[in-house]
């Protein structure tokens, strides 16, 4: 590197125009982000200060009224706190389930053979299959009267469960679906991490007479902790944005027990026609995401790669 660096400097200093050409390669992306990311976020904040409902061609600035509604009115605060709680419950449920079972699956599937390779591929497949399609098959299986799961339960003389129709089970049913979809990915990440571990530790532990569980507990687990952190952070931020799964499976119901925050923003804007309030919620949601990201970045203290 050090021998190349001065050379590079000489070439790039060769002409100032070079810098401009380098910069122009980044222009399309920069313009795009300015228009489709940064401008909208400013506009979002502006809308949140108005009383616009999308149907009128005029609107007034009303100051922080929408935020006041969100934080102090009983309807606004109740809906906001409940949808935030639901989002967090969903996120924590999905992330912890995929991390825990991801490790277990990685240990199970950690074998070099062609049949295991095929099986690993099949386990991770759900993550890449269209969500619209797989939620539909889960709708069919979850169906209270005619669904496969309840039919099997009945055949075993167990009481049927109203999966998506009861406030006690709806969120769990949604999490089960997300778990099914995402755990293969967690498994693959853990597998690569485990494969990358040096065998020296394990040989040393074997000499000390450690059994499998001990090896896992005292060697594997601490060594893959960074991977766990990486996985938890990326899937946490992705899960917070959940929308499609909820819309397809429950439509936010029953009794708003699965009404996650993005779903609520959408409903406020397009069902209640309150773009102003929806924008206020959107801004607050953005702040929450931002704080979460900064916090997790500080914890992890390294660049995390965000898989959308």
């Amino acid at each position: 590197m050090s021998t190349i660096a001065p050379k590079r400097k000489r070439i790039s200093r060769y002409h100032v125009r070079n810098k401009f050409y380098d910069f122009s390669c980044a222009i399309p992306a920069l313009v795009f982000f300015a228009i489709f990311v940064y401008y909208p976020i400013v506009e979002l904040f502006r809308y949140s200060l108005t009383d616009w409902n999308l149907m009128r061609d005029t609107y007034n600035y009303v100051g922080l009224k929408n935020y006041q509604w969100l934080f102090t009115s009983s309807v606004g605060w109740k809906r906001f706190s409940s949808s935030l709680t639901i989002t967090l419950l969903y996120t924590i449920g999905e992330v912890s389930a995929s991390c825990i079972f991801g490790i277990l699956l990685a240990l199970l599937f950690n074998r070099m053979s062609n049949s295991f390779k095929v099986m690993r591929t099949l386990v991770i497949l759900p993550r890449y299959v269209t969500v619209s399609a797989t939620t539909l098959v889960f709708l069919l299986m979850y169906n209270k009267e005619y669904g496969l799961i309840n039919n099997v339960l009945r055949a075993m003389n167990l009481p049927a469960v109203s999966w998506l129709n009861s406030q006690d089970t709806a969120l769990i049913s949604v999490i089960i679906y997300s778990f099914w979809r995402s755990v293969g990915y967690a498994m693959m990440i853990y597998l690569s991490a485990i494969k990358g571990l040096s065998q020296d530790y394990f040989e040393a532990a074997a000499l000390d007479g450690a059994n499998g569980v001990q090896k896992f507990r005292y060697i594997t687990l601490p060594l893959i902790a960074p991977t766990t952190l990486f996985l938890a952070v990326t899937s946490f931020l992705a899960a917070m944005k959940v929308y499609q799964t909820v819309e397809m499976l429950t439509g936010g119901g029953p009794y708003e027990s699965t009404s996650v925050i993005v779903y609520w923003i959408y409903a406020l804007a397009f069902r209640n026609y309150r773009v102003d309030r929806a924008s206020a919620v959107g801004c607050v949601f953005f702040m929450i995401l931002l704080i979460c990201t900064i916090l997790t970045m500080n914890i992890s203290d390294r660049k995390v790669n965000y898989d959308a």
Partner: peptide, 19 residues
Amino acid sequence: LILGALMIPIQVTFIPTYI
């Protein structure tokens, strides 16, 4: 700034983008 865009998903900006 480009990395920052990762933190502003379409789920946040969809209303202004839509308009």
